[in-house]
Structure formats: structure tokens, C-alpha cells
Computed example of a mutant assay.
Amino acid sequence: MQTKAKILVLIPCYNEEANIVKTVERLRELCPQVDYLVINDCSTDRSAALLKEHGYEYLDLPVNLGIGGGVQCGYVYAVANDYDVTVQMDGDGQHDPAYLMDIVTPVLNGELDMCIGSRFIRHEGFQTSFMRRVGIRFLSGMIFLLCGQRLLDVTSGFRATGRAMTAYFARNYAADYPEPESNLAACLAGFRVGEAPVIMQERQGGVSSISSFKSAYYMIKVSLSLIIDRLSIKKIHYRS
């Protein structure tokens, strides 16, 4: 799809030396019309060296901010450089740029303020482990109870935001494992949030930030955070 809109793809990167080059090259091959920014969050492997060697566009953070802080830096950059749509795409090879315009188009058409790439609409491709699917369904149910919005793939980091949503995230973004919390915050703030079907791949290399040991901790922490967010955030409308 050809478009004159300014689109920026944010690629958070922490110790992704096994994946980052393949991820960026596939994006450049399939979506040459978009800009991209790799956000290197103080990687301790060769990620930074590879970004420099290949001449990629990247932001080298001076301190480790975690996934939330790193992505928020990208949203600040997108606002400062006047992008129409900002896309978040993981650096581990799971998110296929072949589906990038599938999540961008509803935002460009004014149908949604944020469109999430969802594995669970058509149930094609890599569906993650059984226990993680159970956890995702639980969080999906929590978000529905807390704001009335049904979202299936609430932990998906593959999503596109319009100008207003991007500006909101530049000011307000959860620090740790932010997708479920930011989904709830966006809904409570009156933004139009929806999903589009995508096919994801299994991580192509490296180690996930959420290990089996951390999964229980993750579920407890995110569940409590969602409840606290709902108690502290009034349902108001930021979208103009």
C-alpha cells in the first residue's frame, strides 16, 4: 500500500544481537516507505555495534530504562518529528512487517486511534505457549471488567497509534511490561482501540525478558497494576 503519510516504526532493542539485523532488513525490504528508529536500551551484547556497523537509525539510551521507558522515548521522538502514525514492533523477529499496513490502515483511515496486531483473531501462526495463552486470556478478561473493552491479544507489542494516541503515550506510559496497562489507560482515556489479525513468528533467537520463573510474578504485578490504574484513572476523553 502506497501512502504519503509519515510513518515511524519504533523497534525496542535489548540484547538482540541474534535478531536485530534480520528484523531491520526485513522491515526495510517490505516497507521501504516508512521510517524506523531502533531504541537500544543499554544492551550488553553486540547490538549497539551491529546497529552502528550497518548504519541503522538508532537511539542509544545512556541508561537502561526498560521496555516502557525506551518505547516512551520513541513516542517523544515521534511527536517531536511530526509523524502521522507510530508503530511499535519488537526487535526479536516475532512481528512480521508484512502485516504492518494491516495495523496502520485503520489508524490512517480514522477508524481507530490504536490498532493492535492480534494473533488470536484467526489463530494462525505462532500462538505462544499454553500457559501464556491462559495468562493473556486472564488479562483480557480483567481489562474487559475494568473498562468494558474486549481486546484479545493484550500483551501484543505490535501496534500502531495515531497522532493523539502517540502524544498521550509520550506523556503517559507504563514502565514495566507496559502493553496491558497502556491498553487499559488508552481505553479509559476515551481513545478508540481495536485489533487486526496478524501472523506472528516464534522468537528467532536470544532470550525473552519474561522467563517461566517470572511469569507468575508478571501476572500478579500486572493484575494489581491494572486494578490500581482503574481506581486512579477517571474515565475521561483526551481524544480531540
Rank of each mutant, 00 (worst) to 15 (best):
Q2T: 07
Q2R: 14
T3Q: 07
T3V: 13
T3A: 04
T3K: 12
K4N: 10
A5F: 12
A5I: 09
K6Y: 15
K6N: 11
I7D: 14
I7R: 15
I7G: 14
L10E: 09
I11P: 14
C13R: 00
C13G: 09
N15G: 03
E17P: 04
E17N: 13
A18W: 02
N19A: 14
N19Y: 00
I20W: 14
K22S: 09
T23A: 14
T23R: 05
V24G: 07
R26W: 02
R26L: 11
L27D: 04
R28H: 01
R28M: 10
E29V: 07
E29I: 06
E29L: 06
C31M: 02
C31E: 03
P32S: 13
V34E: 10
D35G: 15
Y36D: 12
Y36E: 10
L37D: 13
L37T: 13
L37H: 12
L37E: 11
V38A: 01
V38G: 04
I39K: 06
I39H: 04
D41H: 01
D41P: 02
C42M: 05
S43M: 06
S43A: 09
D45S: 01
D45K: 06
D45R: 00
D45A: 00
R46F: 01
S47M: 03
S47H: 00
S47Q: 02
S47W: 02
S47P: 05
A48P: 00
A48K: 04
A49G: 07
